[in-house]
Design a protein around this nucleic acid. Structure first.
Length: 923
RNA sequence: GCCCGGGUGGCGGAAUGGUAGACGCAGCGGACUUAAAAUCCGUUGACCUCAAGGUCGUGCGGGUUCGAGUCCCGCCCCGGGCACCA
């Protein structure tokens, strides 16, 4: 063996030995505990892996390898998320078929993962585009359909004109398609949805018990967007416009009551029912169906139509511009505020969304920012009904006195400025805080917001015009894609326009292998233009039409973790016994960008499958960890005069080659996510060739906390080369004195002070390494190993061969060397095996039991006691552990330096933290 | 605007309310060497001081505590997510 880390000499050899020994085939020993460790399902891109990807799966590998050594049955699989837009787009660009292309790319991924020594059980691998897999994706689709959780409806959807497909809300960022960057357009076509909204509450509730990063849990909570409120009905009165709208007293006007218009109603949802007395207008979304039924003058009808068309033409981006000026149009109709019987105008405005709640709101400009902005622009009354509790009484009195002045007409003349007389009594409007008291609200005046919400909710329910309701922002999951490269939806449209499921026995509906699969661009899938595919016989033997949309890739990744438990089952998606044996995934590792897509969908499917009794877990991923990104040093140049920059860019991306040719004043560097297009990718191939796989692994672990971003520097790996070399040298030098029998001999050998220190260090290191791997603190895991090596050197292991060692010390060093090699195993498995064999041992360290720490051996017999005077550190000294508080106190007081600080002062208080610190409070 | 993270030496970062800066990188000084590489030893937060020693120091301002990087209140800055969701 060499006295340094020479990866070229042994790493590939060990990987070959692991492969031949089938070392990572999943062990399923009866009686052993299980550990399911998994990385996110990767899409194998043509660029291959970068060291950034390794940052994900090296740590997972470390924890899986430790669990293997601890005797767990470990399931550590890897497969490929092969269906979907990225693969199809890439294949179109390359003028090839996505199937074979993905196979090639996946092979590259696998080769690179093996190069880094990841312990995947490849016998369980699959790609989501294989019929043997997607057969069961379709099977689950059918299950959802039968349960009423999959449905088709004509919907306004997000249309990506570049990728020529429909996209889910989640795939749109700032009005642009996340993938293609295209401005998303609106399109009305029939779409398939999964009814995830039925599970909103459970998806929210069950987050509480998950061991996930708080950030991800919060993102999911926000995405689900639960809010509690009241939904109630408003009656409408249409009327022809007059110069000044007259106020209609419904009760006093029998005509309005018999008029068919009087029966017109619409519903609104509010979370602030306590502000109902302050409702001064209502707003309908432009798309609200009621608008067509309003009887209004021709003039108004035209204005309304114009506004509706404007709103429809508006792209989502335009509509979502920050602080956009409010727009709207008065419908000419009035609704009756049920709280006080007063009519309020009904407006149309696009700040109310058709897709949330009822698509209509009661507007309370006094206590809502948006309503206030709208009221201000269109000069609508603003009536305060909530006040900070101080001053509420005076305010109420003022309202009582001035009630007559508060008519609508009066207000319109005075704008909102009429509030100024009591501005001293009132905070500026809109007052949106909830810690206030009702004013100007009839019998509810004086109640707190919370009290009034309860009372008014009850009142609405008793009146029979509404009820308390919970609303969610979560929308149903849009699953269909008008594209070729995806899992076909197993549905046949019959002649009569009915939908039928393809019988289970006929699954999978296979994707036809065709040459031309490019998007048709007409809003239909390319599959619609393949007669052999489209023409199908329905279940009654008649000619029907096959559904030609395919499922988005998130369907495939919503259950793959179940298939890994039983990947080659031909008859069933999985054997429940096997799935229940392995599930849930104990540790799931991947990027934070999937917070509200994949992770929410997979949870939804798992719950549906749980309800069906097909799995016995309600949640798929017990623990989730997000790795930080690896950023590459990326050169840019400043723009030349007149040159256009992309949004948010400060310069123009250039290659490293180009950067070398330009003067320093014209270029600058930024840290950017590694990507092929930025040319800043460091591949594992390069890193392994130059520094070695173990050096790469150790550097990835050590460079930063697991979830923090990393600024990549190749030089960092040379530090790990140095550290590993140090270990090789140490083991090489100690090898002649190594005794494999240390465990048996130590009990019969005298352990001197030095031996005790060696053993203490060894056992403390075992404890710390085990704990830190468990809690994903890999950087400190590596640093404990470094301290271990440094410590053994300080204890003279290097001079062991030249100096006489006591038998006990020699055995203690043998234990230490062996332990070091085993603790190193998860991080640097090649080196671990190489060192292990250099001690004359057979086999692989991954099969050797993980070292056990002995708390007695790990315990210190002396401590460094810190002595503070008035909280300031004044002295430290070594003292035995296990003394009484009094003994520590006395020892501290007798220290020379301390005596000096105590001179002439009285000790008022003494705090003793046993074995740590004594704080003397003097005055 | 709302919701999450985060702010510690020249750099990456450590630190269950108890000795701030572990471990490493980079630097500096030295040993070995004809020389270099490799390796080893020492040193490295700032300031005051010949020294012993002392003062300050974890984004800013307050507070709780015998004791605060850590807890509380109020801000500032950076990163991420959501956003006219009633």
């Amino acid at each position: 063996m060499s006295d340094r880390y020479e990866p070229g000499a042994f790493e590939a050899t060990w990987r070959e030995k692991w492969r031949r020994a089938d070392l990572f085939k999943t062990r399923e020993e009866a009686g052993a505990q299980k550990f399911y460790g998994m990385d996110f399902f990767p899409y194998p891109s043509g660029a291959g892996l970068s060291v950034g990807h390794c940052r994900n799966f090296v740590p997972t590998d470390v924890i899986c390898r430790m669990k293997l050594m601890q005797g767990f049955n470990v399931l550590h699989p890897m497969g490929f998320d092969a269906f979907g837009l990225p693969a199809e787009n890439e294949a179109i660009k390359q003028k090839t078929h996505p199937g074979p292309m993905i196979d090639r790319y996946a092979d590259t991924y696998r080769r690179q993962m093996e190069l880094v020594g990841i312990s995947y059980d490849w016998s369980r691998s699959f790609k989501s585009c294989e019929p043997s897999y997607y057969r069961w994706t379709q099977w689950i689709f059918e299950l959802l359909y039968r349960k009423g959780l999959a449905y088709q409806k004509n919907a306004a959807v997000n249309w990506d004109p570049i990728d020529k497909t429909v996209l889910a809300d989640e795939e749109i960022v700032g009005g642009r398609a996340e993938r293609s960057g295209a401005l998303v357009e609106k399109k009305f076509i029939p779409q398939w949805f999964f009814k995830i909204t039925d599970y909103a509450q459970r998806l929210l509730d069950d987050l509480d018990d998950l061991d996930w990063p708080d950030g991800i849990k919060n993102q999911q909570r926000n995405w689900i967007g639960r809010s509690e409120g009241v939904e109630f009905e408003l009656r409408i009165q249409s009327e022809t416009p007059t110069a000044k709208p007259k106020i209609i007293d419904l009760a006093a006007d029998p005509e309005t009551l018999v008029s068919p218009l009087a029966a017109l109603t619409f519903r609104v949802f509010t979370t602030r029912i306590d502000t109902i007395f302050g409702m001064t207008f209502c707003v309908l979304a432009p798309e609200h169906p009621l608008v067509e039924n309003l009887q209004v003058s021709e003039e108004r009808r035209i204005a309304i139509k114009t506004y509706q068309e404007q709103a429809r033409a508006l792209s989502d981006t335009d509509r979502q511009v920050e602080n956009r000026e409010k727009t709207g149009v008065f419908t000419g109709a009035y609704a009756i505020n049920p709280a006080n019987g007063k009519p309020v105008p009904i407006w149309l405005a696009d700040y109310v969304l058709a897709t949330y709640g009822t698509g209509a709101i009661m507007a309370v400009p006094g206590h809502d920012d948006r309503d206030f902005a709208f009221a201000k622009k269109f000069d609508i009354a603003v009536i305060p009904v909530i006040s900070p509790s101080e001053g509420a009484t005076e305010l109420n009195a003022w309202f009582k006195e001035n009630e007559s002045k508060l008519s609508k007409a009066e207000h319109q003349e005075n704008g909102i400025s009429y509030l100024s007389p009591f501005s001293t009594l009132f905070v500026p409007l809109p007052f949106v805080a909830k810690d206030g008291v009702l004013v100007n609200s009839g019998e509810y005046s004086g109640q707190t917001v919370a009290e009034a919400q309860a009372a008014l909710g009850t009142w609405i329910e008793a009146l029979g015009i509404g009820q308390r309701k919970v609303q969610y922002k979560l929308r149903d999951w849009l699953i269909s894609r008008q594209r070729y490269w995806g899992c076909p939806i197993p549905i046949i449209h019959t002649k009569d326009g009915d939908l039928q499921l393809v019988p289970e026995s006929q699954l999978p509906v296979e994707l036809p292998m065709v040459e031309n699969y490019e998007p048709s661009g007409d809003g239909t899938s390319p599959l619609a233009h393949i007669p052999n595919f489209v023409n199908a016989t329905d279940n009654d033997g008649r000619l029907g039409r096959r559904e030609t949309d395919t499922m988005g890739g998130f369907a495939c990744s919503s259950w793959y973790f179940l298939r890994f438990c039983n990947p080659h089952n031909f008859d069933r998606p999985w054997d429940p016994e096997l799935v229940n044996q392995w599930m849930p995934v104990d540790c799931y590792v991947g990027g934070a960008e999937h917070a509200v897509m994949h992770l929410l969908y997979a949870r939804f499917w798992t719950k549906v499958l749980f309800d069906e009794g097909l799995v016995n877990v309600k949640e798929p991923f017990k623990r989730l960890e997000n790795q930080g990104q690896v950023l590459g040093h990326t050169p840019y140049r400043y723009p030349k005069e007149g040159e256009q920059l992309d949004m948010g860019q400060e310069g123009i991306l250039i290659s490293f080659k180009e950067a070398e040719t330009l003067p320093e004043s014209e270029i600058f560097y930024r840290w950017a996510r590694m990507s092929k297009s930025k040319g800043n990718v460091v591949t594992p191939d390069d890193a392994v060739a130059t520094y070695g796989a173990d050096a790469l692994r150790m550097y990835l672990l050590f460079v930063a906390p697991f979830n923090a971003d990393v600024q990549w520097a190749n030089e960092g790996m040379s530090g790990q080369v140095r550290f590993l070399s140090k270990i090789f040298r140490m083991v090489e030098e100690y090898q002649p004195l190594y005794s494999a029998q240390w465990r048996d001999l130590i009990p019969f050998t005298e352990i001197d002070d030095r031996a005790r220190k060696v053993r203490r260090l060894t056992h403390q290191t075992i404890k710390n390494c085990t704990q830190d791997i468990e809690r994903f603190s890999f950087n400190t895991y590596v640093s404990w190993l470094m301290k271990f090596v440094n410590g053994l050197q300080d204890l003279g292991i290097a001079s062991a061969t030249t100096n006489e060692l006591s038998p006990g010390t020699a055995l203690a060093f043998s234990e230490a060397v062996e332990t070091l090699i085993l603790l190193l195993g998860p991080g640097a498995p090649h080196s671990s095996d190489e060192l292990w064999s250099s001690l004359g041992k057979e086999g692989f360290t991954v099969n050797i039991p993980w070292p056990q720490f002995d708390s007695e051996l790990a315990a210190d017999d002396t401590v460094t006691l810190a002595v503070q005077v008035n909280g300031k550190l004044r002295d430290t000294f070594e003292i035995a552990v296990g003394l009484s508080n009094q003994e520590y106190e006395d020892a501290a007081k007798s220290r020379e330096k301390i005596v000096h600080h105590l001179e002439g002062k009285a000790i008022r208080k003494v705090i003793v933290v046993p074995g740590k610190l004594v704080n003397l409070v003097v005055g």
